[in-house]
Amino acid sequence: MNATVTSITRRSLLCTLTVASLLTALSARAAEAKRDDTFLEAKDAGADFQVQGEYVGEKLGVQVIALGNERFRAVFHQGGLPGAGWDGQAKIEIDGATADRKTTFATADGKGYSAEITDGTTLTGKTDAGASFTLKKILRESPTAGAKPPVGAVVLFDGSNADAWAGGHTDKRNLLASGSKTKQLFGDFTLHVEFLLPFRPFARGQGRGNSGVYMQDRYEVQVLDSFGLKGLNNECGGIYTKAAPRVNMCFPPLSWQTYDIDFTAARFDDAGKKTKNAIATVKHNGVLIHEQYEIPGPTGGGAPEKPTPGAIQLQGHGNPVFYRNVWIVEKK
């Protein structure tokens, strides 16, 4: 066999191996994209769940997002965590991965912030200036979690039954599943809702624990696992596609979270013409995210505006999102 033939054979073999490697990689990515690992309780959620979460130290907070297959993203907040010291300025995001029981975060060029987590409770690292830091993992709780309904409130769900809900059903934990709306209709009100998002590390965007709280079945406050994300108007706390929250207060998945909503319905004249927009003030986990926001019209999937009361809907979106301690006070 001459040198030319040998060279062609080698190039052909190399090409075949390259294509095979590429196909294998694409196949692996496709298989990963189809993964639907969904966890409803922390005890079952695995090692990645133990790493993800919130870490805080002196004038610095970090949110670690699990992305599946021992991959993560760390989001650095100067001053502290969102709603607890963050200065609201630009965030620093660094990807990382776990190997040999250590999760490491570093930029591709080795410059900038770096960090590592070795025990699931402590994050250590250095800033871009070389200053060392040590952060401890915390589990935040909403200050209004477990809030008792005041005198005169209508208790919509307390764990005993789902009778107040059309199509409502509970699971073995006596939690209300998403995908139902109240039988009773409401005008102006204050509403307290507590919700639990699943841990779905391979899911992305709107597939990551999607639900929503609809006021009057017309205006949605989005419910979504947006932990560590930008806080857009279609993410958790957003008045869906209308207004982004002032700050992304989404806790990590499998943490109980709260919405406290003060709602004033749209007003109409005798001819049925709208004269005032509906108004909503919303607190997410006790932090103000919308103040007296005028909602210009129904959000996506919402019922048409009318001078009539409407239901509270806990949107079902194919995701196992659950609710507890739901009550409402009508404003007379």
Rank of each mutant, 00 (worst) to 15 (best):
Arg11Pro: 02
Ser12Asn: 06
Leu14Phe: 15
Ala20Val: 12
Ser21Ile: 14
Ala33Arg: 12
Asp36Ser: 15
Asp37Asn: 13
Glu41Gln: 11
Asp44Leu: 10
Ala45Gly: 08
Ala47Phe: 05
Gly53Phe: 03
Glu54Ile: 00
Glu54Ser: 04
Glu58Leu: 11
Lys59Thr: 05
Val64Tyr: 04
Ala66Val: 09
Leu67Thr: 04
Leu67Tyr: 05
Arg73Asn: 09
Gln78Ser: 13
Leu81Arg: 02
Asp95Trp: 03
Thr98Ala: 12
Arg101Phe: 12
Arg101Asp: 13
Thr103Lys: 01
Thr107His: 11
Glu116His: 08
Thr118Asn: 08
Thr121Lys: 14
Gly130Glu: 06
Ala131Thr: 14
Lys137Tyr: 12
Ala145Tyr: 12
Ala147Asn: 05
Lys148Asn: 07
Pro150Cys: 12
Pro150Arg: 15
Leu156Cys: 06
Asp158Phe: 09
Trp165Val: 07
Gly168His: 01
Leu175Cys: 06
Leu175Tyr: 11
Leu176Gln: 03
Leu176Gly: 01
Lys183Asp: 09
Leu185Gln: 15
Phe186Asn: 00
His192Asp: 09
Leu196Phe: 13
Pro201Ser: 13
Gly207His: 14
Tyr214Val: 05
Asp217His: 07
Gln222Ile: 05
Leu224Trp: 08
Leu232Ile: 12
Asn234Asp: 12
Glu235Ser: 07
Gly237Val: 10
Ala243Gly: 00
Ala244Ser: 09
Arg246Lys: 14
Pro253Gln: 13
Trp256Lys: 12
Thr264Cys: 05
Phe268Leu: 11
Asp269Glu: 09
Gly272Asn: 09
Lys273Cys: 04
Lys276Phe: 05
Asn277Lys: 11
Ala278Ser: 15
Ala278Phe: 13
Tyr293Ile: 04
Ile295Lys: 11
Gly300Met: 14
Gly301Gln: 01
Thr308Leu: 13
Pro309Met: 08
Gln313Ser: 15
Gln315Val: 08
Gly316Asp: 06
Val326Gly: 01
Val326Lys: 00
Ile328Asn: 00
Glu330Ile: 07
Glu330Trp: 03
Lys331Val: 03
